[in-house]
Nucleic acid binder design. Structure first.
Lengths: 225, 225
DNA sequence: AGCGATGTCGTACCCGGGTACTACGGTGGC
DNA sequence: GCCACCGTAGTACCCGGGTACGACATCGCT
């Protein structure tokens, strides 16, 4: 059963979503939020699998709400919806940690498929956006461009939020050390290690140390031996 | 009207495919096969335009069935489906004469588009595979004419001790999947997953799945995303 | 026909990992 | 002087991971 929180300032729109989702026997709507602040509070309270997040809302908008929700390291995934396929929303939304970005005029089936996808950890992007998103992405990727070479460590944005100590912890996590080993070799109490690890997971949006290991490799913080 | 034969050992999966295909007014399902042998027999009998072929089936598997079907010189095209984007399957599948190779968790639209494509003689490959497939191809281009060397196994010695299934398990461990997720996506009991994981750890000399993740990355079994 | 390898599923048990708190000393900035 | 941040440490609790069994079906090989 996928639990969903609907965040949209339009009551009628919320009702539409609720009707659609409740018609599915594998989905249930935990609640409705009318703005970003409510969405954050209700997410912390109800822990839905997925938050259906409208971009335009009075007060705290959907992008900022997404950023704060994903920053908690909670298991909740955010699927952003907007009326228009404006690029800047998509970019900032996905950078804010959203698992997906769809346009509101999509087919109901697309929306449902999108919710199911993000609930299992996958990501979805509206087809109308995919191409432009990919273009922008690959424009940032290539190491084979002869122009700019001085990029040894383009670390993931998620790593910049870490303190030095936390990055150190992430490094040894990436080496496969257990909490006990970390405590022994760094002359710390195991409880302290747990505190650090917990903060690293929260800040990087990793659900467990395995995800953190993968992140360490993907960002190059730890290199294959 | 495109006629399709569905070959998959999972009744539920077959039902899903049938529902999807029958909902299209330009497609119809001629029949369902639960293993490779049945698929071959029913293909010879019904002459479908396309066979939707699962890789993993009891008895004769999808790859071998594909080989025998395409060897008949019949007009029937084979579109291979698998749960994972495992390279060896793709290689051997396409070498077996398949017209396409898609992953099961693709969007229904992708699947439908794929069926229509192969029915008209085109070929389709899952986006997640395209890159590696191209890499492999260009790697085969320079001066090498390998007739018997389809197995690029520079893998760590510890990996050779694993069975195919166990290597699959290690791959998804490397992707950070939990046992519960593995069970769900591979249609296995969690106890079975635990058994596999335990054997993988024992054979690779890993004390826990974190070490296994590291091994998967170090050997290149899983590549940084 | 028998046998080993492989894949599947189950139960029972223990332990490390992760969370949710609280707490306190040091340090640097304003 | 105060406060935000950081690093340290503790307790209590729950759950997923890993281990150790046993069991059964299929398949390939001899």
């Amino acid at each position: 059963m996928t639990t969903v929180l609907v965040a949209d300032d339009q009551p009628l729109q919320r009702l539409g979503f609720r009707m659609l989702l409740e018609s599915q026997d594998d989905m249930t709507v935990l609640g409705e939020a009318a703005n970003g602040t409510e969405a954050i509070r209700m997410t912390a309270e109800l822990h839905p699998d997925v938050v259906l997040m409208d971009v335009r809302m009075p007060g705290l908008d959907g992008i900022e709400a997404t950023r704060r929700i994903t920053a908690t390291g909670d298991r909740t995934r955010v699927l952003i919806l907007t009326t228009f396929d404006l690029d800047e929303y998509a970019y900032s939304g996905l950078r804010a940690g959203a698992s997906g970005f769809l346009v509101k005029d999509a087919q109901p089936e697309e929306l449902l498929a999108g919710i199911r996808a993000v609930s299992t950890g996958d990501a979805v992007v509206a087809p109308s956006l995919t191409r432009r998103l990919l273009d922008a992405y690959v424009h940032h990727l290539p190491a084979k461009t002869p122009t700019d070479g001085p990029e040894p460590t383009p670390l993931d944005a998620r790593l910049t939020a870490l303190t030095d100590r936390e990055r150190e912890i992430l490094t040894v996590i990436g080496k496969g050390w257990t909490n006990t080993e970390i405590a022994a070799r760094l002359h710390l109490a195991e409880s302290t290690v747990k505190t650090h690890v917990g903060r690293v997971l929260a800040k990087t949006g990793s659900r467990d140390r395995i995800q953190a290991v993968i992140l360490a490799y993907d960002t190059g913080l730890v290199r294959p031996s």
